[in-house]
């Protein structure tokens, strides 16, 4: 359900920002837009953003959410930053494979592995 409350949790560890989702289902269009806007603000807050997006606990994801991730990826790239995805459930990873977005994104089993992969 759409809400005005934040749909993400953000942790900062040094220059690395880690985003987790509040909801198990990332389907609602207005929530997706809110998530997109919040992450855009996080990216804009750093000169060369290092961003980890963790999908821990996420059970459903729509194509609109994938579109938002692509926009995030483009924004990070524009700011010469780095984006990593982590903790993707096997069923959701299949969505990435079907859409071939597993080739576009840097995907890691855990957030720790994602952090280690940052340059």
């Amino acid at each position: 359900m759409a809400s005005t409350e934040s749909r993400i949790k953000v942790r900062r560890n040094g220059d690395v920002m880690q985003v987790e989702f509040v909801d198990r289902n990332i389907l609602d269009e207005s929530n997706i837009q809110m998530i997109r806007d919040e992450i855009a603000g996080i990216i804009d807050s750093a000169p060369n953003p290092k961003l980890i997006i963790s999908f821990q606990g996420v059970e459903h994801l729509s194509s609109a959410a994938l579109g938002a991730l692509i926009a995030v990826n483009n924004q990070v790239r524009t700011r010469s930053g780095q984006l990593r995805l982590a903790h993707i459930d096997p069923q959701i990873y299949e969505v990435f494979m079907i859409t071939r977005l597993n080739k576009l994104f840097s995907i890691h089993a855990t957030a720790d592995e994602a952090v280690k992969s940052l340059k």
């Binding site: 194509s63 609109a64 579109g67 692509i70 926009a71 990826n73 079907i98 859409t99 576009l104």
Partner: peptide, 21 residues
């Protein structure tokens, strides 16, 4: 086809692909 290289970064157009899959 959203899986083609020239379309892979398009923000939309994946719904039908997922339905068919």
């Amino acid at each position: 086809d959203p899986t083609l290289e020239e379309n892979i970064e398009r923000g939309s157009g994946r719904g039908l692909l997922l339905i068919r899959a």
